[in-house]
Design a protein around this nucleic acid. Structure first.
Lengths: 236, 236
DNA sequence: TATTGGAGTATTGTTCAACAACTCGGCGAC
DNA sequence: GTCGCCGAGTTGTTGAACAATACTCCAATA
């Protein structure tokens, strides 16, 4: 009411930042980390009672957390039987790539409209991977690879695509746990990631997309092979 | 044991069919229908106590249902404040199309690999829309349009894409409730849907995709307009 | 020997009641 | 007109209870 009053409009929308989290969400976060890091092997049954004791929350809250992770497909809820760590099948692997392909490719092809910061984030993920390799951190290479593809998805500037990508990649980590030799999987793609990024940074979007498409073909083929040959076809 | 024992392998995988559903899921189904049909206007607050009385379930079960619908983005859960029927903003509309575009277009472009039944389902949705129009059922036209695009998504043969599409379209119904004149929105596109299908059925996949792309541009433009001009920019 | 049936146990599904933590609106002090 | 406080109402979380279902083991049977 005094002199100017429109400064309020210039404050950059703090919005959701100060979200407090519910207990269920925090429990879900912990559980998610355990699943993704492989501490809980695919197929493991999560007993309500035992987990409840570990986390010291009520059964109801725990069940809410289970629901959350179920929606992310990291856990599967079988009625009256309990929740299990998801155990991706060959069909799941193929399906994951069926979703990633159109989303990531279109993100790259339309990257002309993406902000510079988003492109740079892709580069940062590439470097993260290279650093991890130089210190022999194979799990770090995998993480960096996830970040790389997450950054690519972010090029499209869509929160919903971000979320879908995030979920898909979390599921993919499960796939790695379920397959035969996860250690050597990511390293070969470090070079390709850099090439994709270089094309991208140079504005050669279609070229980057073509390279990415090749990556998809190769990676999917390798995964399918690991599943069929490796260590028994996750019978399920 | 006796003569032949492999008949068991020939039984066509009854699998998931006989899934029993939890109470929470049934409640979620009812609520979803209410939201989609517009019985609950966007922005409405859903009091736990009142809904609980209506549905005669416990508060815990109800909260589980809320969580489910929250994940579908039909409800938004504000911590310590309650759940509200989602109120899509202009940004949401744009985002929805950002996701639909790559998914549906790639589904159509790759429809050569889709089974005939999937293509026929697209045609069935077209006819469903034409029937609805002939009897002046404008809401039915909208439903048929949803089915049309859901069928298109199904061309890609990916369960995950199916699920994403289903959610996106449910959200889109919310958009219609939030905008100015939903009645007249769908009818103009009936003709285009048929053309897209005809191209598809004729095996002209790229042509079908191009038509679909035009549809996206037009529909998004119209929706954005309805949001900006119509009845105040859903301030939020 | 292999299969079926059933009792008992463990686990999940759902409800209920209680209390803590928080939001919202109003009222009074300044 | 702003600030702070109080109280009513709602949500968040817990714990206990009971019903419904699945799992295990053992005996009966063919």
């Amino acid at each position: 009411m005094t002199v100017t009053d429109d400064w309020i409009d210039r404050i950059p929308d703090v919005g959701e930042e100060l979200e407090r989290s519910s207990t269920a969400e925090r429990v879900a976060d912990k559980l998610r980390a355990l699943v993704i890091d492989g501490a809980l092997a695919p197929g493991t049954r999560l007993s309500e009672e035992k987990i409840r004791q570990k986390f010291k929350v009520s059964r109801n809250t725990l069940r809410e957390a289970f629901r959350l992770l179920g929606h992310e497909r990291l856990l599967v809820h079988e009625f009256n039987r309990g929740v299990f760590v998801a155990k991706p099948t060959l069909a799941d692997v193929v399906d994951l790539y069926r979703v990633r392909r159109p989303l990531e490719l279109s993100a790259v092809r339309g990257a002309a409209h993406a902000p510079q910061a988003a492109v740079r984030a892709v580069g940062a993920a590439v470097e993260e991977g290279e650093r991890a390799e130089s210190r022999g951190d194979w799990w770090g290479i995998g993480t960096a690879n996830m970040h790389f593809h997450e950054a690519i998805g972010r090029l499209s500037g869509s929160p919903r695509i971000d979320e879908v990508m995030h979920q898909l990649l979390a599921e993919l980590r499960l796939v790695f746990h379920a397959m035969a030799a996860p250690r050597e999987f990511h390293a070969p793609y470090l070079g390709e990631n850099r090439e994709i990024y270089d094309s991208l940074a140079a504005g050669a979007f279609d070229e980057a997309a073509d390279r990415l498409a090749e990556y998809f073909d190769a990676a999917e083929r390798q995964l399918v092979e690991a599943f069929s040959g490796g260590r028994g076809v996750t019978t399920r």
